[in-house]
Design a protein around this nucleic acid. Structure first.
Length: 306
DNA sequence: AACTATGGCAACCGCGCGATA
DNA sequence: TTATCGCGCGGTTGCCATAGT
């Protein structure tokens, strides 16, 4: 046998909460806590609400230290970065922004940030068209890495080197400043074995743990391929479970870019790389290094589906 | 002033997963 | 072991305020 139904749906109030209901719920939870059972809570207080509704009201509105509206530029950037890397995992994103709820961030993204992005995208479309002529010249000189078929399909995509050139020690390293990369990845949600104190101090869990200190090969390897039990053993203080988010990210890229290559443009414009500046040989800055890794990963993924 | 369109947001819905009887 | 429920989550809806005509 299972449990009893949580509530009689015909006899619960729905719609906006009144100040009296808010006060009842808040007073009770302040004094007794939730008791770990939302379903039983409304009955104890004498509220004609479903337990789920109480939980939602508390988490999104009544809970202490909740911020509403007034998102800062830094919060905008963080939300955008997280969305680009992990998608609509609003609860994970909210966990990185103190005082923000998943619902708030979700609404903010759907009503404002997304539009902001599209506006920026339109601007950059023009830059891409300008870069197209440049690419045509490079195609003729045989310097491009895209297949002719891909060039025809997506003429304004950035040129990217093959993965082999990333891990070939004879070639020039394209991402030089590892400390800055670490700092950026931490900001974006990375956890690093030799920077573990930061993680503990922040008391947060990050979705993409990786150790970029050990070697560039490992860095490139870990950022480009799903992490399995063999790979993760190279990361002290980590478990395979810690890498789930990163692996999910790769899987999502698979889905996103195979079904809609145009999303690459979205990624580019969000991360600040336009095709006009995306010639990979020019990407020496750390910022573009990270952008480039995302673009590279997306590019390779999409190429698999050609 | 009246009507319509749009934006912003709170709340609800429905699903997946783990817990439980 | 299995059926059912609670919880947490992302997606969606619907209400209200404001802008535009």
């Amino acid at each position: 046998m299972g449990r009893a139904p949580c509530c009689d749906k015909a006899n619960v109030k729905r719609g906006p909460w009144s100040p009296e209901e808010d006060a009842k719920l808040k007073a009770y939870i302040d004094q007794h806590g939730t008791g770990g059972n939302w379903i039983a809570l409304p009955q104890k207080i004498g509220l004609k609400r479903c337990g789920k509704s109480c939980r939602l009201r508390w988490l999104n509105y009544l809970r202490p230290n909740i911020k509403h509206g007034g998102f800062s530029e830094e919060e905008d950037n963080l939300i955008c970065s997280f969305y680009m890397s992990i998608g609509s995992r609003w609860s994970i994103i909210a966990a990185q922004l103190p005082g923000r709820t998943d619902n708030d961030i979700k609404n903010y993204w759907n009503t404002r940030l997304k539009k902001k992005l599209l506006g920026k995208q339109r601007k950059e479309q023009q830059a891409r068209r300008a870069s197209y002529a440049k690419q045509e010249i490079k195609k003729e000189s045989g310097q491009n890495f895209m297949s002719p078929e891909a060039m025809n399909l997506y003429p304004d995509w950035p040129e990217l080197p093959p993965t082999s050139s990333l891990v070939n020690p004879d070639q020039e390293p394209y991402i030089k400043d590892q400390a800055s990369i670490r700092s950026l990845l931490v900001k974006l949600g990375g956890k690093f074995s030799n920077d573990y104190s930061f993680d503990q101090q922040q008391n947060t869990t990050f979705p993409y743990p990786c150790d970029i200190s050990s070697s560039q090969d490992l860095l490139y390897g870990s950022l480009m391929n799903p992490i399995d039990s063999t790979t993760f053993s190279q990361f002290p203080n980590s478990t395979l479970n810690d890498f789930q988010g990163y692996n999910n990210f790769l899987a999502e890229l698979d889905n996103a870019f195979s079904s809609n290559p145009a999303q690459l443009h979205q990624l580019e414009s969000f991360s600040g790389v336009t095709s006009a500046e995306s010639s990979w040989r020019d990407m020496s800055s750390v910022r573009s290094g990270w952008n480039w890794m995302l673009v590279q990963s997306s590019y390779e993924t999409s190429m698999k589906w050609q």
